[in-house]
Simulated scan of single mutants.
Amino acid sequence: MKKLVLFLTIMFMTMSYGQEIKQVPLINVNGEGKVKVAPDQVCISASVETKGNNAKDVKKQNDEKMDAVLKFIKKMNIPTADFKTKQVALNPQYDYEKKKTSYNAVQTVEIIVKDLSKYDELMEGLVQQGVNRIDRVSFESSKLAQYQSEARKLAMKDAKVKAEEYVSVLGQKVGKAFTISDNSQIYTPRPMYAAMKSMEMDAAGASNETLAIGEIEITANVSVSFVLD
């Protein structure tokens, strides 16, 4: 009997709780905010790669070329804090057809250039000093966090405007935000191998200006659910 009374009591409480739950009227919208800015710095990832049949000789050649590259970077008055070695590797490569082992040495340096007027000269000099692989060229903004914040605020404003436009037709008002989801991505233009093009133009006697950095478009995308009043 006690078990039956307990069971009926729990059922009653559950039914009462379910009746108290109310459906919250919501409107779900997406918002987008964009900020366009000119880059004020460029990040370059450049590698020296050498190959040969003798590991010691391959490493020595690679070290000598990278030494020349680092000296050139310093000569360009790039602060020490703005360039660093990112990779050093010496790997054997076995040729099963010739049954011989060769070696491949790679050193990669990452450089942040805050004076964009040095870009063309630096890229051309890197190639001349021994860089034979440009892995990445990324034009960036040193104030990225600030512009990301601005884009997010614009995205939220856009979402609220859209919500208000929809519900105004129904004679309702937009209340507080119920849920917010951030779906933002960042795009940075990456023109590759500009130094190589510059050298080709020099040989033809043409202008060596290759830098067309454009703008960075920082976009924020949000999904927002607003409560309807």
Rank of each mutant, 00 (worst) to 15 (best):
S168V: 02
I134T: 12
E164W: 07
A81W: 10
I112S: 09
D57F: 04
A46N: 00
K176C: 07
I186F: 15
S45P: 01
E165Q: 09
V109L: 01
K98T: 00
E209K: 14
A145Q: 11
N91C: 06
K162D: 07
I44R: 09
P79S: 08
V69Y: 04
V222R: 07
S168T: 01
D229Y: 07
A105V: 02
Q41I: 09
T85R: 00
T85C: 09
A46W: 01
K157C: 02
S184D: 03
P189V: 01
F83A: 05
E20T: 14
Q19K: 13
S16Y: 11
G125H: 02
E217F: 10
K56W: 09
S16Q: 07
G214Y: 03
N30Q: 12
L70E: 11
K143D: 15
K160A: 02
P92R: 10
F226T: 00
Y103E: 09
A206D: 15
A81E: 15
I44F: 07
L6E: 15
M123W: 12
I111P: 13
K51W: 15
I134M: 11
V69H: 06
L144R: 06
E121Q: 15
V29S: 05
A38G: 15
K176W: 12
D63R: 14
D202L: 02
V131E: 05
S149P: 03
P92L: 08
I27W: 02
L211M: 14
V48C: 01
D182N: 14
M123V: 13
E121H: 13
G205R: 10
V169I: 08
S149A: 09
K162M: 06
K2V: 05
K153Q: 11
V169W: 12
T50A: 03
N183E: 08
S102A: 06
P189F: 02
N132Q: 08
S207C: 12
I27M: 03
V42D: 04
V48K: 00
V29D: 08
V35Q: 00
Y193W: 13
L170Q: 06
V37G: 07
E110R: 04
V131H: 00
M1A: 15
I218Y: 04
K143A: 10
E64H: 11
K176F: 14
V137F: 10
K2R: 09
